[in-house]
Design a binder for these strands. Structure first.
Lengths: 344, 344
DNA sequence: TGACAAATCCAAAGCGCTTTAAATACACTA
DNA sequence: TAGTGTATTTAAAGCGCTTTGGATTTGTCA
């Protein structure tokens, strides 16, 4: 069933039917009702491609995965983030369109997406300092929102980010307040902006307590369980082992916990651990007393906010202000932290 | 830059240019080369909507999330599965299009996807016994592949599944061979087919050893870390606690491990644990000696296979045979299992 | 009753591509 | 040199929608 057919059935022109369905005012109430009725009856859905062709829109929002080192898939937040994007997009009548690119074809991929006309806007993830994609998007003329921020990009752009620096400042301060001085860091890939900021927060807070950050206690890499395990194991084998660990994801924390337990130590007593918590749907840390002391911000709701912001930009391209949203992580005190052990 | 413009530049008709680019034979080699050259030069990309409108294709493959009880997002495999789908789709020139539906609007959503013409085929996940979607897809006339199988659906349909029953038979048998008799089950949602099959494998193997499955040692539910913890904790508090646990995901296993350790027991010695392992990218269980003894099958590669199968169907709709693929999980022996403790 | 404005409705163009049917060019035979 | 068959190219229709510009109907008021 298409428009032509439907209007023939109704004895109306395509124009009128289209307008009736589109909610335009130049249609009488009676006609509108008749059309709506018939549309329902024949289960008419306007063809998305035809409509897109006529309007220049696609009602798709895009997201591109990069094969490069597979970090994105490896990132445990991927599922929840996509879920958040999809939820809000769908509610607004958009689909989320995922594609994939090789690292060295990134620019071509983005340009293609635009010139094919297959998306109305795009969500950029994992920004790096000086991220070229931001200038590229502007050049291409594709509405976009960044999940995170890109240090050293001075032109304004739309973003949603957690205050990662502040989160790690608070976490570090919390450990300092408990008397810890040797605090090991397990961070994400520090070529990515979020991890840089987290590290900066950690270092600054140590400095403010007159502690010189120890490079040997600062690790960054893929946030997988086994890396968490391996690094924590290594830290704990040191002559002077850290009394506390600050880690960038619950998955890392789970690996670290395994190492702590293998070493015969008790978490929260012998070794404290504080984690960043993305509030993943399958990894709840929301028990009445959380398992992990953590700084928490839901990545699923970040996904929702991003989609909302992007759709706002798509639907009102004239808006001159460039929106952004800085989310604060909350500190939740759980069972994985305690005062520094007396004798060591 | 569009076709009309490009052909004007070349002094050729749109037809010829379109054919040259499309690889049709009725174009001279010289012309084809000229066209290819110009296309590159002007960075021409055919408009996807226009092309779709003309061909009736969309070069999108669809996947629908259901809001109902959020199980899918809660499922830790979601990210890897989507990743696998995207990878293969992208390589074949398709995008993955995600949408979302309320439980009670499922049928309408699928019909809409078809009549809008926004997807060429669809991936169905989490099938249940008698799953109505299979008949619906056939009725709608949308190519589809199911991730899993639907018990009691007799008409043939395309699917990719792991031999879940066999996997759990092997896992159970492995525990029996180690002398375990009281084996607790932590399963996924048993309204879903995969979990039913796993349970059937577990029960059948116990029966074959003349053990009556104990309903009190069989739990099913969302596969989150905290459920794993809560259920294992409960099991271990029993008067006669199980000596082994069989769990349906590594995330559950991690929760169970936490409970075991809290109880002051050692995993692999006091309590054995064997898990289903989806080989998630951020949760590797591939250490030289795996942390968890497990039956393993990669959900990421299942995603790849499904996309490949679906695209095959889309591109050769005449093919009469209905493909399917049954993957066998491999048993990997790790550190989480051992012989049943002597005295209990 | 007629004039004018407002309310409705419609024909047709256009979005950018593919593809059918037909025209033209070319290369050879006879 | 004309005739034939093949290779190459093209004009135009059509995919299903939106939207412009115009036509028609209706209503109101002098």
């Amino acid at each position: 069933m298409n428009l032509k057919e439907l209007s023939k059935q109704l004895g109306l022109s395509q124009t009128t039917v289209s307008r009736a369905l589109g909610g335009y005012p130049e249609v009488s109430a009676k006609t509108r009702a008749r059309v709506a009725q018939a549309a329902k009856e024949f289960d008419y859905q306007p063809n998305k491609k035809a409509r897109g062709l006529a309007t220049g829109r696609s009602f798709n929002i895009g997201h591109v995965l990069t094969t490069h080192n597979r970090y994105e898939l490896v990132n445990p937040i991927f599922g929840d983030f996509i879920g958040g994007l999809t939820e809000t997009s769908a509610a607004a009548g958009y689909s989320l369109s995922l594609s994939l690119t090789e690292q060295d074809e990134e620019e071509a991929t983005y340009r293609k997406l635009k010139s094919e006309g297959s998306i109305d806007g795009i969500v950029l993830q994992s920004p790096r300092p000086n991220d070229l994609r931001i200038a590229l998007m502007r050049d291409i003329g594709l509405p976009f929102v960044v999940h995170g921020r890109a240090t050293n990009v001075s032109d304004p752009y739309a973003w949603v980010d957690v205050n990662n620096r502040r989160a790690f400042e608070r976490a570090t301060q919390f450990l300092l307040d408990l008397g810890h001085r040797r605090i090991g860091l397990l961070n994400g890939d520090e070529r990515l902006d979020f991890a840089m900021r987290r590290r900066a927060g950690y270092e600054a807070t140590l400095h403010s307590a007159d502690i010189t950050p120890d490079l040997d206690l600062m690790w960054r890499g893929p946030m997988t369980e086994d890396h968490g395990h391996a690094v924590a194991k290594d830290y704990l084998a040191r002559h002077e082992r850290p009394t506390a660990l600050l880690v960038s994801s619950i998955i890392l924390a789970i690996g670290a916990r395994r190492a702590i337990q293998e070493a015969g130590l008790e978490i929260g007593r012998d070794v404290s651990l504080i984690s960043y918590d993305d509030d993943l749907s399958y990894l709840s840390n929301r028990q009445s007393v959380p398992v992990f002391t953590a700084v928490r911000s839901s990545v699923l709701s970040a996904g929702r906010e991003i989609a909302k912001m992007l759709i706002g930009q798509i639907e009102d391209p004239t808006a001159s202000n460039i929106p952004n949203l800085l989310l604060e992580a909350e500190l939740v005190v759980g069972m994985s932290t305690g005062p520094v052990p007396d004798a060591l």
